[in-house]
Computed example of a mutant assay.
Amino acid sequence: MASSITSSFQTSNLRSVFLGERNVLCLSSVPVTRVGFLRKTIECKDSRIGKQPIEVPSNVTITLEGQDLKVKGPLGELSIAYPREVKVERDESGILKVKKAVETRRANQMHGLFRTLTDNMVVGVSKGFEKKLQMVGVGYRAMVEGRDLVLSLGFSHPVRMTIPEGLKVQVEENTRITVSGYDKSQVGQFAASIRKWRPPEPYKGKGVKYADEVIRRKEGKAGKKK
């Protein structure tokens, strides 16, 4: 019995450097069985946005070829390529439905995203999008010269921006700018580039802001009391 115990354990003596005590370290030669882990199946629920159908107006033409979709309307033409995780279908009534092709977490994320992008395309070529900006400040003004937007924002020289193709820019009362177009991302990007030149500051509210933007104001520093 004693021989079997000594064969299953190997004893090595270690001496502590600081305390001078003898420690015993036992190494077991008995094989250890592997611990198994249970895999939990992830249930991917349908996106609330992704499962909503998309109504196509009568003045919009849809061309669907595999994973490629082209949308053409009175305002312009847009196209999109879907990833393999999602697919788009069109029923007899002309309604578009974006569905998941596989049941994965990435497919659940792509489902709602590409449904929104598809809906923006249909609305863009039929009705269009617009973004309004307001200029606040003494001497701040804007004007359109041909295909250029000229801004006076207090710099030593006016800012000249070329208007991209597919966009329209209108200026009212020299301080109100309206950017419109059929591509929602392009409209938002150009409006953001205009605002970037002079973002509104929180003390007096001077700068270029969106028409529906609320600026949180701050109080200025009070002078020292005499």
Rank of each mutant, 00 (worst) to 15 (best):
S79R: 06
K168P: 15
Q134G: 00
E85G: 08
E172R: 06
G94D: 02
R160F: 00
T118P: 00
G181Y: 01
S93K: 13
H111Q: 04
M161T: 08
Y82A: 03
E172T: 05
K100W: 11
Q67Y: 15
T118R: 03
G137H: 00
K99I: 15
F114N: 11
G181D: 00
G166K: 03
V136H: 08
D91N: 09
H111V: 02
E130D: 12
L75G: 01
G73S: 03
R84D: 12
E85L: 09
A81H: 13
P158L: 02
V98I: 14
L117G: 10
P83F: 09
E92L: 11
S93A: 15
N174D: 14
T178K: 04
K87Y: 08
T162Q: 12
G137L: 05
A107M: 05
G73C: 05
E85S: 15
D91S: 10
L167R: 02
E77A: 11
V150D: 03
E92T: 15
T116E: 14
M135E: 03
V102D: 04
L78C: 01
K72I: 15
R176P: 15
P158M: 01
V179T: 04
E130P: 05
E103Y: 09
F114S: 06
L133I: 02
R105F: 10
S79F: 10
I95L: 14
S156M: 06
T162F: 11
L167N: 00
T118N: 08
P74Y: 03
V123D: 06
G139L: 03
R141L: 13
K132S: 10
L75K: 01
L113K: 14
R141G: 12
S93F: 13
G154S: 04
